[in-house]
Computed example of a mutant assay.
Amino acid sequence: MIDHGVALPSYRLHVVPAVVALASPAWQRDVWLDPDQHEDLDHIVHALFDDFCNADDPQPWLGQSLRTEQEVELMARLGTAYGAVQDAVGRRRPGRGIPGRAGVGGRGDGSSRLGPGAGRE
């Protein structure tokens, strides 16, 4: 697969729809609340904070699954906004993986399990 501007275009195929899903309340109602669908908020959080990017620290993903500095900045803002929501509802766990997702990523330090460049030979 060729995607100008990113080394891991298959990762981007997960990041972009996850961002779109967060921006669409109609999608969230129709898909996330349907028990027959695979996608839910947990799936989206994994895509954006663990598997294909790290919205808490998106800079290393520039050129991997993010194309531009603007996308890095917007992803960082998304991470900050998500963290604020988690703080507001008391779900953020300091020193743990994804905000509100203890243990995700397997390291407990907020870093991605896969990381930029993972899976490349």
Rank of each mutant, 00 (worst) to 15 (best):
E71L: 05
D34P: 09
R107Q: 05
H14Q: 14
D42I: 08
G106L: 01
I44F: 00
R93Q: 13
G105A: 08
G97L: 05
Q64Y: 15
D40N: 14
P58N: 08
E39W: 07
E71D: 15
F49G: 04
G63V: 01
F52P: 04
P9N: 11
R113E: 15
V45S: 08
Q28R: 12
R93H: 06
S111C: 14
T68D: 09
V31P: 01
V31C: 04
V6T: 10
R93K: 12
P116K: 07
D51L: 12
Q64V: 14
A23T: 04
E73M: 06
D30A: 12
I98Y: 05
G117A: 11
D50V: 15
Y82K: 03
R120H: 14
G90Q: 02
L48E: 01
H43N: 09
D87M: 09
G95L: 10
A102S: 14
A18I: 00
V31D: 00
G119S: 03
V6W: 14
V6S: 06
G90M: 03
P116T: 02
E69F: 01
P60S: 07
A76Y: 04
A23S: 14
G117R: 13
G103D: 00
W27A: 01
G5M: 12
C53P: 05
P58I: 01
L33E: 15
F49R: 06
I2T: 15
A21C: 01
R91F: 08
R93Y: 06
V15F: 04
V45I: 06
E71G: 08
F49W: 07
A84H: 08
H43M: 07
S10W: 15
R12S: 02
P99L: 01
D50T: 10
R93T: 15
G90T: 00
S111V: 08
D50E: 15
S24N: 10
N54R: 10
L8F: 13
D57Y: 07
D87H: 10
D109Y: 08
A84F: 05
Y82V: 10
P35N: 05
L22W: 02
L74W: 03
D87P: 11
R101L: 12
G119H: 07
T68N: 11
D56Q: 07
R113N: 07
F52K: 10
A81K: 06
V89F: 10
Q64S: 12
V16N: 09
G110H: 02
E69W: 04
M75R: 05
R77P: 04
A26Y: 04
D34Q: 09
E71S: 05
N54P: 09
P99I: 02
A81D: 11
G79D: 03
G95Q: 03
D36P: 02
D50L: 13
W61E: 05
E69P: 08
L8C: 10
E39Y: 03
C53D: 07
G79S: 08
L41F: 14
A21P: 00
D56G: 09
G97W: 03
L48M: 02
D87G: 13
R67I: 12
L62C: 07
G117V: 06
D56W: 02
D51P: 08
C53Q: 02
D3M: 12
